[in-house]
Design a protein around this nucleic acid. Structure first.
Length: 498
RNA sequence: GCCAAGGUGGCAGAGUCCGGCCUAACGCAGCGGCCUGCAGAGCCGCCCAUCGCCGGUUCAAAUCCGGCCCUUGGCUCCA
C-alpha cells in the first residue's frame, strides 16, 4: 500500500512518486505576517506537519521549506501599531508567529525564508522572465504576460478571457491584458492602498506609507509583487522542480496559478508535481479568515484548549475537506483526546503495577492493536485521512479499556503485560504521527505538587474508610477546583491534571 | 457569468478514486444494564440514516452515468 494524494493539478488521486525518495521536496505557502495567526493557519500548519511526519514514517527523507511574507501593504498598514516601519512591524508579528508555531508542536521546517531577504533572487527571476519574453516593463513596474504562457490556467481550469481583471484600476491601464499580474511594482506604497487595511490606532496612511521598504532594481526603485516571492524562494531553497507544493484552498487562483506560470516560464521545467490544498474553516456560514475578522487566534486557542486537544481537533477532518469550527466541535475533540489519554494512562499504570510479569495473553487485545496499526496506515496512505487515522487510535483505547476491565486484578484475571506494552507503544508512535503527545503535561507525580496531591488523596482514603463521605467528597471537590480530577478505582484513587 | 469543491443519523465526520465484507466507521449527545458509598471514568448493550432529488447502467450503487435543486470557496488581500 503506497501513499496516494489528491492532486489539484490533475484533479485526481494519484500514487505519490517522489523524484528522489531520500529527498522529498516540500514547499508550503506560509503567511503574511501582518496579523496574529489564527486557527485557520494552525489547521494548515498542522496538516502540513502531519504530511511531513507521515512521509518520514514511510521512510522518505523530507526537505520542508515554508516562507513568510514580510513585505506587504497590510504590514505597512500596521505601522504605528506594532513598530515604526515595515520591517519592524513584520519582525514583531514574525516573532509571535514563530512562538505560535512552537506551541502547536510542529516539526521545524528546514528553513523559513522571508521575502525581504530574497529581493536579489526575485529581481533575477524577473529579469529572466523579461529576457525570455514572458514579462514586460511598464511605467517602472513589471508585469507577467499571461498570454505568453500557454498553460496559464491549468491549475484552476480558468480561461483568461472569462476572468475578471486583477489589480487596482490604476494598474490596469499599465497592463496589456487585464489578467496580467505584477512581478515588480514601481515606487513605494500608495497610501490609498493601505487605507482599507488600517486599524484604529495605526499611523495615518501617509505616514505609514513612508515606512514601507523599497529596493533598487533594473526598473528603478520599487517593491516585489506578491506571487513571485514563492517562486523565487522555492527555487532558491529547494529546486526548480519540486515534489509537493501545499497551500490553502483560497490560494489556488490566482496565487498558485501565477507561481506556476512564473516558475515554469523561467526554468522551462515542471514547477511542482503534486499540488495539495488545505480546505478552510467554516464558522457559522462563512469561512474563517483574517479579512473577515471572524477568527480565534492560535494563542487564545492553545491557552484555552492545550496542544493535544487542539491537534485532535485540527486533524478531525481531512485536510482537503472543509471543517466546522464551533465550541461544540472543539469540545468533542477534547472528549476524544481525553479518552485516548485516559486509556494510555490506565495501561501505563497497569504495566507498572506490582504484580507485573504474568505470562497471560489476550489475543483480542493484541489483534486489536495490530489491526489498528494496519488501518491507521491505510487511512494515512489514503490522502492523509487523519480523521480515520484518529479513529484507529480510539480503537486502541477501547481495546485497552476492554482488556483492563475484563482482567481486573484480584478477580482471578491477570493482565497481558506484553500486549499492554504494545498497545501503549503503538498509541504513542501513531499518536506522534498526528503530533499528539501522551507523555507530556499530565504527569505531575514526580514533583512536590504531585506528592502533595498523593498526600491529600491518602487523607481522603482514610476518611472514606471511616465512612466520612461528606468530608471525602469535599476534598474531591476542592481538588477538582484546583484542576485535579480524582477517580476512585479498584486499585485505589488516581487523578489527572485537567 | 466563469472555475472549483461539496450535500451521509440529533451533532460532528469517515467511506465515494478501485460498485458487493456499508443492514454505512470513530466520537459526542440520548436510553438501558454492570461497576461504585456517591460521582467520575470505564465496560456491555440499545436507539437515530431509505447516504440532496429524479432517472439510468448492473445480479449488486452512498459509491458509476445523465439531468435537476441547494450550499460553500475562488475570479480582489487571505492558510
Amino acid at each position: 500500500m503506497t501513499l496516494h494524494v489528491e492532486n489539484t493539478l490533475t484533479g485526481e488521486r494519484e500514487p505519490f512518486e517522489p523524484r528522489d525518495p531520500e529527498d522529498v521536496l516540500l514547499y508550503y505557502c506560509g503567511l503574511t505576517v501582518s496579523d496574529p495567526p489564527h486557527l485557520g493557519h494552525a489547521r494548515s500548519w498542522v496538516h502540513v506537519d502531519v504530511m511531513h511526519r507521515w512521509l518520514e514514517y514511510l521512510g522518505y527523507g523530507v526537505r520542508h521549506v515554508e516562507n513568510f511574507t514580510d513585505v506587504n501593504e497590510k504590514i505597512v498598514a500596521r505601522i504605528g501599531e506594532a513598530g515604526g516601519d515595515e520591517e519592524a512591524v513584520a519582525r514583531s508579528y514574525l516573532a509571535r508567529t514563530i512562538a505560535d508555531m512552537r506551541s502547536l508542536n510542529l516539526l521545524r521546517a528546514e528553513v523559513y525564508p522571508r521575502v525581504s531577504e530574497h529581493v536579489p533572487e526575485i529581481v533575477e527571476l524577473i529579469e529572466t522572465l523579461v529576457e525570455k519574453g514572458y514579462a514586460y516593463e511598464s511605467e517602472g513596474s513589471v508585469y507577467f504576460d499571461v498570454t505568453s504562457f500557454e498553460e496559464y490556467g491549468e491549475l484552476s481550469n480558468q480561461d483568461i478571457d472569462e476572468m475578471e481583471s486583477q489589480g487596482d484600476p490604476d494598474e490596469r491601464s499599465e497592463k496589456r491584458h487585464p489578467a496580467d499580474f505584477a512581478l515588480w511594482k514601481a515606487g513605494g506604497v500608495d497610501p490609498a492602498a493601505i487605507e482599507e487595511h488600517r486599524h484604529d490606532g495605526a499611523a495615518p496612511a501617509e505616514e505609514a506609507a513612508a515606512g514601507a521598504s523599497t529596493w533598487d532594481s533594473p526598473w528603478g526603485e520599487g517593491r516585489p509583487g506578491w506571487h513571485v516571492e514563492c517562486s523565487a524562494m522555492s527555487m532558491t531553497h529547494l529546486a526548480d522542480h519540486i515534489d509537493i507544493h501545499v497551500g490553502g484552498r483560497d490560494l489556488v487562483f490566482p496565487h498558485h496559478e501565477n507561481e506556476i506560470a512564473q516558475s515554469e516560464a523561467a526554468s522551462g521545467e515542471r514547477f511542482a508535481d503534486y499540488w495539495l490544498h488545505c480546505e478552510l474553516f467554516e464558522i457559522g456560514d462563512e469561512k474563517m479568515s483574517s479579512s473577515l475578522g471572524n477568527f480565534v487566534t492560535v494563542e487564545e486557542a492553545v491557552s484555552e484548549w492545550g496542544t493535544n486537544v487542539l491537534r485532535t481537533f485540527l486533524t478531525a477532518g481531512s485536510y482537503n475537506s472543509e471543517q466546522l469550527y464551533s465550541e461544540k466541535t472543539i469540545a468533542e475533540a477534547g472528549e476524544r483526546w481525553e479518552r485516548m489519554e485516559r486509556a494510555h494512562e490506565r495501561a501505563v499504570n497497569a504495566i507498572d503495577s506490582p504484580d507485573a510479569g504474568s505470562k497471560a495473553e489476550d489475543g483480542d487485545l493484541r489483534e486489536a492493536v495490530t489491526d489498528a496499526r494496519v488501518a491507521f496506515e491505510r487511512a494515512m496512505n489514503n490522502d492523509f485521512n487523519t480523521r480515520e487515522a484518529q479513529s484507529e487510535l480510539l480503537e486502541i483505547a477501547g481495546a485497552i479499556n476492554h482488556h483492563l476491565d475484563r482482567t481486573a486484578p484480584g478477580a482471578g484475571g491477570s493482565y497481558d503485560y506484553r500486549g499492554l506494552r504494545e498497545a501503549v507503544e503503538t498509541l504513542e508512535e501513531l499518536g506522534a504521527v498526528l503530533g499528539l503527545s501522551f507523555t507530556g503535561d499530565t504527569d505531575g507525580r514526580a514533583d512536590l505538587a504531585g506528592e502533595v496531591v498523593d498526600l491529600l488523596l491518602s487523607v481522603r482514603e482514610r476518611e472514606r474508610e471511616a465512612g466520612n463521605y461528606d468530608r471525602a467528597d469535599e476534598l474531591r471537590e476542592d481538588l477538582e477546583d484546583l484542576g485535579v480530577e480524582v477517580q476512585d478505582t479498584d486499585s485505589g484513587p488516581s487523578y489527572r491534571l485537567q
